[in-house]
């Protein structure tokens, strides 16, 4: 609030990078922690994002990986179940797709593609449904159940990138290049916002999560459309920002929101801020 007032009175350009920078720090920092082991023999965390052990004590397991393993017909050991519970509880608090925005390294690849796409003014081509990821998730789980093999892990770009960085790439960079080119040339925000079944799992997991972006000051919106332009899932902004007349509250409740906070960064009117999903009442906006 104060900074906004300050920047208008002093006519300084608003600093628009706070949350983006924090996100990049988080993404790179987490990978850095994983790399400290193999590179410097400092074992803060062992394993990779699929499953790991923090400080030789805390097990963490990716819920999507566990889901696939369970679908294959294998009952995982307690360690993995405990690890998944911890991860699930965490994302239930901070937002399921906070994983996508704040942890997943593929996000850096696809954000770069989206940025470049805009710089080069490439028109959107293929139109994919945003529900494709859920279809894909269901299809893959079915295939896993039928074959007993975690089929997605043969091609999963998310696993491949993080595991590649930590354990060595092989030809996995080709898969990442494919994702980059797909997002750049074929479908706008194609991978993360339309196809990724891992993100879909986190969406479902965090559908009722606590930490949310709120548009409490939506009355100040001057329709500049900047938030819609930068948002990887712009459909989630609409009801919270413009839902006043339909009696919708100011909290962005869409489960596909990645809690990236980019809308907070770019809004000149400081409409958005991080908050909780509670008190989603109308009066907050007036």
């Amino acid at each position: 609030m104060n900074t906004a007032a300050l920047s208008t009175t002093m006519a300084l350009p608003r600093w628009r990078w706070k949350w983006l920078l924090l996100r990049r720090l988080s993404q790179v920092g987490i990978l850095g922690l994983f790399l400290l082991g193999p590179w410097a023999e400092i074992w803060v965390v062992k394993g990779n994002l699929s499953s790991n052990l923090v400080l030789d004590l805390l097990p963490l397991t990716d819920p999507f990986l566990l889901l696939q393993t369970a679908a294959s017909g294998h009952l995982p050991e307690t360690t993995a179940l405990l690890g998944t519970s911890i991860v699930a509880a965490f994302y239930l608090l901070v937002g399921g797709r906070a994983f996508c925005g704040w942890v997943c390294p593929v996000n850096i690849v696809t954000d770069t593609a989206a940025w470049l796409r805009e710089k080069l003014d490439l028109r959107p081509r293929a139109r994919l449904s945003r529900t494709t990821r859920y279809w894909l998730l269901a299809t893959l789980l079915l295939a896993t159940t039928v074959t007993g093999v975690v089929v997605w892990e043969w091609v999963n770009p998310v696993s491949m990138l993080q595991r590649g960085l930590i354990f060595g790439f092989g030809f996995a960079w080709l898969v990442l290049l494919a994702v980059f080119l797909f997002d750049l040339l074929v479908a706008q925000r194609g991978w993360c916002s339309h196809l990724c079944p891992m993100g879909a799992t986190y969406s479902l997991l965090g559908a009722g999560s606590v930490v949310r972006v709120r548009a409490d000051d939506r009355s100040r919106c001057d329709d500049c459309m900047e938030c819609f332009r930068v948002c990887p899932e712009p459909q989630v902004i609409q009801p919270a920002l413009k839902g006043d007349e339909q009696g919708l509250g100011p909290v962005i409740t869409g489960m596909n929101c990645t809690n990236c906070g980019r809308c907070i960064d770019v809004c000149d009117q400081s409409v958005f801020h991080f908050g909780t999903r509670f008190h989603n009442k109308m009066e907050a906006s007036s």
Partner: peptide
């Protein structure tokens, strides 16, 4: 065939 369903490819055994 069961291993390919159960392994999450985390590399903890490798480490």
């Amino acid at each position: 065939e069961r291993f390919l369903g159960a392994c999450v490819r985390c590399g903890l055994c490798v480490r």
